[in-house]
Amino acid sequence: MKTVEEKVVILTGASSRIREAVAKELASNGAKVVLTARREGRLRNLKLALEKQGGTVEYKVTDVTSQDDMEELARFTIDTFGRIDVL
């Protein structure tokens, strides 16, 4: 999974256990990860856990069924990391 190193990855539904595992794998392999979901508490806790392990992580509460939220997520990611490589 070294091919994700330095890639900017938006991970939707990141508050689920399966996506949490994916986020850990991405961050541990050098990806810059933007976590998204509707539950802020879970996102915040995951961000802190991944940062303690050396990951580069941000989060944005997002409803993927909302076009406005998705546009805001894209702007947030580009403002934060300069680009989006994987959604």
Rank of each mutant, 00 (worst) to 15 (best):
L46V: 04
A49V: 12
L11Y: 15
K32F: 08
D79N: 13
G54F: 00
S66D: 12
R38H: 08
L46R: 06
G54T: 04
K7G: 00
S15G: 05
S16W: 06
V9C: 03
V64E: 06
N45G: 13
L48F: 10
I18A: 11
D68K: 15
L11S: 13
L87D: 11
R38N: 02
E20T: 14
T56I: 15
R17Y: 08
A37G: 12
R42K: 15
R75P: 03
T12N: 01
K52E: 15
A31F: 01
G82P: 04
G41L: 02
E51K: 12
E58A: 03
L48W: 11
E5R: 15
D79L: 06
Y59E: 01
L26A: 03
R19F: 13
I78G: 07
M70W: 04
T12Y: 08
A31T: 06
Q53A: 15
G41Q: 15
T3K: 14
A49N: 09
A31Y: 02
S28F: 00
I10H: 06
V34N: 07
L11Q: 12
K24M: 11
R19G: 13
K24Y: 01
I10T: 05
N29S: 04
S15Y: 10
I18Y: 03
R39D: 08
R38E: 11
I18W: 01
K47G: 00
V34Q: 08
T36Q: 07
A23G: 05
T12H: 06
L46Q: 02
R42W: 12
K32W: 10
V34P: 06
V86G: 05
T65M: 11
A31M: 01
K2C: 00
A74L: 12
E40Y: 04
R83D: 12
Q67L: 15
I78R: 14
V34L: 09
A23C: 05
G82V: 00
F81A: 01
T77S: 11
K7P: 00
L50A: 05
K60G: 02
R38Q: 13
L48V: 09
V8S: 01
T62C: 14
L50S: 07
